[in-house]
């Protein structure tokens, strides 16, 4: 159902979205088959069209009266111009329901609507409620019109229901797809931010690790580090794990693997900042850290790295202030 078209994406956007969501012809047929939406349903809906023309305005008006009763939905229609335009769009959709041709174009329109609603932040519950409202309003009128033939009325109503369920499915899938896409982008951003590899001197990198490490992060960390070693031609890398609250055997093994892999590439790894608890845990769980070069704190680690690289850092004794 149309609410606001100001932020309406272009139709090529909806087309791309449809492709991304893998809503191809086969999938659409599959969805229709699952809803048992068949040719007779299309015909029955077409028959309703004349009738729908008659009561469309009435139904839409009552739907928006209903919307305006709730603060959460009312806020979307503060501007009377918006309300008017949205009503018109809504009416178009309402009549579209009984207009046949439930093809690609139709699906694209539904996806577009779903994505508009997701982007303006209209919750699914309002959306579902509005569809319920529709079905009740139209159902009442169908049964009234086919008073003499209740069986026909029920069939027509079911046809409409199937189509509405398909539309709901498409819209909600669009909601979910868009939210998942956002989550994915954010996750990647967090992951990249969480493992900065810093160059301290020529051939010397530091990798401060902050926060808990799980297998996935450890793996990513290792890969990023190894590539940084090659790209920045590092000879020594200091990994500081002061900010890592707990280290379990899996994380410890990852550290050992990282040390081994770096050595294979010709770089030396120094691990600093093992807290008392972490050191005790490692000894208790019996991780073999003999191969790992550890230094108490980051300062010590950097000094050790400088020694390996042959730097002599001395404090200047000259008086710069004259």
């Amino acid at each position: 159902m149309e609410k606001d078209t100001e932020s309406e994406p272009t139709s090529s956007y909806a087309y791309n979205l449809m492709k991304e969501m893998k809503l191809d012809e086969e999938e659409i047929l599959h969805r229709k088959a699952w809803l048992e939406f068949e040719e007779p349903d299309v015909n029955r809906l077409l028959e309703l069209n004349d009738m729908a023309q008659g009561y469309a305005t009435e139904v839409i008006e009552s739907l928006y009266d209903h919307f305006l009763k709730f603060d959460d939905t009312k806020k979307f229609f503060e501007d009377p111009q918006v309300l008017n335009r949205v009503k018109n769009l809504q009416k178009k959709y309402f009549l579209r329901l009984t207009n046949g041709n439930y093809d690609d174009q139709y699906i694209q329109e539904r996806i577009k609507i779903g994505s508009v609603h997701a982007s303006i932040g209209l919750d699914v519950k309002w959306y579902l409620g509005a569809y319920g409202f529709y079905l009740r309003a139209v159902g009442k009128r169908i049964f009234k019109a086919f008073k003499s033939n209740p069986e026909k009325a029920l069939e027509s109503y079911f046809s409409l229901e199937k189509l509405v369920y398909m539309d709901i499915g498409l819209a909600i899938d669009t909601y979910i797809y868009q939210r998942e896409a956002t989550i994915k982008i954010q996750q990647e951003a967090i992951r990249e931010l969480s493992t900065p590899v810093l160059q301290l001197r020529e051939e010397l990198l530091i990798l401060p690790i902050i926060g808990a490490i799980d297998s996935q992060r450890a793996r990513q960390l290792t890969e990023q580090l190894l590539h940084a070693i090659r790209d920045k031609r590092a000879k020594v890398v200091v990994i500081d794990i002061t900010g890592v609250p707990t280290v379990d055997s899996r994380v410890a093994n990852h550290l050992v693997q990282t040390v081994d892999a770096s050595r294979l590439m010709g770089a030396t790894l120094i691990i600093t900042g093992l807290s008392a608890e972490v050191a005790q845990t490692l000894v208790t769980i019996g991780v073999d850290l003999a191969k790992i070069n550890t230094v108490g704190d980051l300062q010590g680690g950097i000094e050790e790295a400088e020694r390996i690289l042959g730097y002599h850092v001395t404090k200047s004794l000259e008086d710069d202030s004259k």
Binding site: E223, R230, R233, T258, A261, R263, L264, M265, G266
Partner: peptide, 29 residues
């Protein structure tokens, strides 16, 4: 010399760490 990051990572995952072999970054080193 010159082992690629992906190769190094894959090798340690398989437990192949070449413990008694010297390594370096490149030919020069």
């Amino acid at each position: 010399v010159g082992m690629q990051p992906d190769v190094a990572f894959a090798m340690v995952q398989l437990g192949l760490t070449l413990p008694n072999v010297k390594t370096a970054r490149d030919l020069e080193e």
